[in-house]
Amino acid sequence: MKKNLVLIFTVLVCFLNISCLSSLQELSSGLMDLNGGTSVKKVPAYTNEEAVSAMKDALEEGIKFASSSLSQKDAYFKNAAIKILLPEEAKPIIGILNKIPGGQSLVDDVVLRLNRTAEEAAKDTVNIFVSAIKQMTVIDGIKIVTGNKDAATEYLREKCYDKLVNLYKPKVNTVLNKPLVMNVSANEAWEKLITNYNKYGKIANTAAKIAGQKEPCPPVTVDLAQYATEKALDGLFTGIAEEEAKIRENPLKYASAMIQKVFNYVKQGITTITVRS
Rank of each mutant, 00 (worst) to 15 (best):
E158D: 14
V126D: 02
L85F: 12
E26R: 14
S39R: 14
Y168R: 00
V172G: 04
V165M: 09
I203N: 06
L236G: 01
Q25V: 11
D74M: 07
L21G: 08
K123L: 12
A232W: 01
L21P: 00
V172M: 14
K134I: 06
A66S: 15
I210D: 07
L5P: 02
S28Q: 10
A118V: 02
V126Y: 03
A118P: 06
K178A: 14
I84A: 04
T271K: 14
A152C: 09
L27A: 03
M258T: 12
A45P: 07
V222P: 07
D108L: 04
G102V: 03
M32R: 05
N198A: 07
T195L: 07
Y76K: 01
L156N: 03
E188N: 13
V52K: 03
S22W: 01
E230R: 08
N250S: 13
L16T: 12
S277C: 03
G103T: 04
G141V: 05
V262T: 02
K159C: 02
P101Q: 09
K99N: 14
I144D: 00
T206N: 13
A257D: 14
L7A: 09
E188F: 05
A54C: 08
F237D: 06
V184Y: 12
N79W: 02
S185T: 10
S277D: 12
N205F: 05
E49T: 08
L112D: 09
D57H: 06
P44R: 07
S69M: 11
L180M: 14
D150H: 04
L167W: 05
S68A: 15
T272L: 05
K3L: 10
L114K: 08
L16M: 12
M136P: 06
G239N: 03
N183S: 14
K199L: 13
A81I: 10
L164F: 01
R248F: 11
I270N: 07
E119W: 00
R248D: 04
V184Q: 15
Q268R: 10
A245V: 13
L34M: 12
I142V: 15
V110C: 02
K78F: 09
P170I: 08
L164S: 01
V175C: 04
S256G: 05
E89N: 12
